[in-house]
Design a protein around this nucleic acid. Structure first.
Lengths: 160, 160
DNA sequence: CCTTGCGTTTAGAAAAAACTAAACATTCTA
DNA sequence: TAGAATGTTTAGTTTTTTCTAAACGCAAGG
């Protein structure tokens, strides 16, 4: 497998890095995922390390984490005892699940503090109360929407 | 206005800080927004600075940025020339718009590189091509969903 | 004008994150 | 069983981010 990469693949990888960075995630994770998405076959640690120009230890750590998150997959190398990595087919939905968690967390917080304020009614918390119910309504709707989204995607995926 | 804060408001503020941090955004922004959401009236720079225990310069900078993003609003103080800040009523939808941008960016990238690969057909880019079309389909659907979400929310907001 | 009360900018300190190089552990191979 | 090829852990360095303290600028009121 080539340890270097064509110009527009390089560009794609960079875009992914930037995307992840802009999103607050680790730039390196973006680079890694961009690389695996645009590579024909699975890549070894050393290959990734060379292309991305990072030390082996760092890549070892990054791949392990991304593997746990379900963003990339470890492949048993056929011949040697090398590990090979490839982008998980469900990577997009898995990243989406991460977002979903945040939405659920928002909803949970709104709920919790709404109950808190009811249980122990404070004067001068009118604004807070109002904000909590808007927050609750918003993330409830979003949560429902996300469920709908996932159902639809699962159907569409079968067609592809 | 009180320069200190009840225990469970403190807790709410912390939750918001953690939420933002977990999302990759600045923890301080979360704290600030949590504070404003749970405060009865607008707060001055100095009050925010005291409650969050950060220097005035830092808070000055943070508020200005959040104001530009539309997450918080500057209120003209009636008596003095102090600036007062409050959480924008549309804060949740505005944060949502930020996500939307990322989704659109993903879609744009998928599109762009699909065209790139067509224009200049590489052999051994089968995997990349497949991934791009999955990516395209995924973020297209998500983009559509987001539009639908926003329409529905605008309707629901009128009821509240 | 001079002073006072405010928000902003800035230089640099402190803390956190990203990264490297090297030691280490494990497993295969000869 | 020694050597080679691998992935992991660790200690420490570099880079980036966050934050403070103080200087600054500007407007209002005497």
């Amino acid at each position: 497998m080539a340890s270097t990469v064509a110009p527009h693949q390089k560009q794609f990888i960079e875009e992914f890095g930037n995307l992840y960075a802009a999103y607050g995630l680790k730039r390196l994770n973006g680079l890694l995922i961009g690389l695996l998405l645009s590579s024909e076959g699975p890549l070894s640690l050393d290959e990734i390390s060379t292309v991305l120009n990072r030390s082996k230890g760092l890549i070892s750590d990054a791949t392990r984490r991304l593997n746990v998150l379900g963003y990339i997959k470890k492949i048993e190398g056929p011949e040697s005892r090398k590990d090979y990595y490839t982008a998980d087919a469900d990577i997009f939905i898995n990243v989406f699940h991460f977002n979903m968690q945040t939405v659920r967390k928002n909803l949970e917080i709104a709920d919790r503090f709404q109950h808190e304020l009811e249980r122990q009614p404070k004067k001068d918390a009118g604004r807070w109360k109002t904000n909590l119910s808007v927050m609750n309504a918003f993330y409830k709707q979003m949560s429902d929407f996300y469920d709908g989204f996932e159902d639809l995607w699962n159907k569409k995926k079968k067609e592809l």
